Amino acid sequence: MVFDTAIDADAFARSCRDWGVDTPCLHPGFLEDERMAQALDRHGLRSWLNIPVFCDLKYLERHPDAYAVTSLGRRAAQDWLHFVCPSRDDYLDGAIEGLRGNLARLSPAVVSLDFIRDFVFWERVALDGPSAGIEDGCYCPICLSRFEKACGEIIDRKDPSAYIHRHLLQPWADWKCRRILEVAERIFGEIGALAPGIALAVQTLPWRETDLDGAIRSRAGQDVPGLAQQADMVAPMAFTQMLGQTTRWKEQLLAHVRASTGKPVCFYVQAEALYRAGNITVEQFDAELTQARNSNPAAIVALQYEQLAARPEKAEILRKHFRP
Rank of each mutant, 00 (worst) to 15 (best):
F3H: 14
F12Y: 15
P24L: 07
D33E: 08
D33M: 03
D33V: 01
M36Q: 07
R42H: 12
I51G: 04
V53T: 11
L57E: 12
K58V: 15
D65P: 02
A77Q: 02
S87G: 11
L92H: 03
I96H: 08
E97F: 11
R100S: 03
S107R: 01
V110F: 00
F115M: 07
F115E: 06
L127N: 05
P130N: 04
I134W: 08
C138Y: 15
L144K: 03
I155L: 15
R157C: 08
A173Q: 04
R178I: 10
E182Q: 08
W207M: 14
E209Q: 09
L212G: 10
L212C: 09
D213V: 02
R217I: 09
D232C: 08
Q241F: 15
T246V: 01
R248I: 14
E251L: 09
L253W: 01
L254P: 00
V257N: 00
G262F: 00
K263S: 03
V265S: 05
V269Y: 07
Y275N: 10
N279M: 14
N279R: 14
F285V: 10
D286A: 03
D286C: 06
A287D: 10
T290C: 09
R293E: 08
A299V: 12
E306Q: 05
L308C: 03
A310P: 04
R311H: 13
P312W: 10
R319G: 06
H321Y: 11
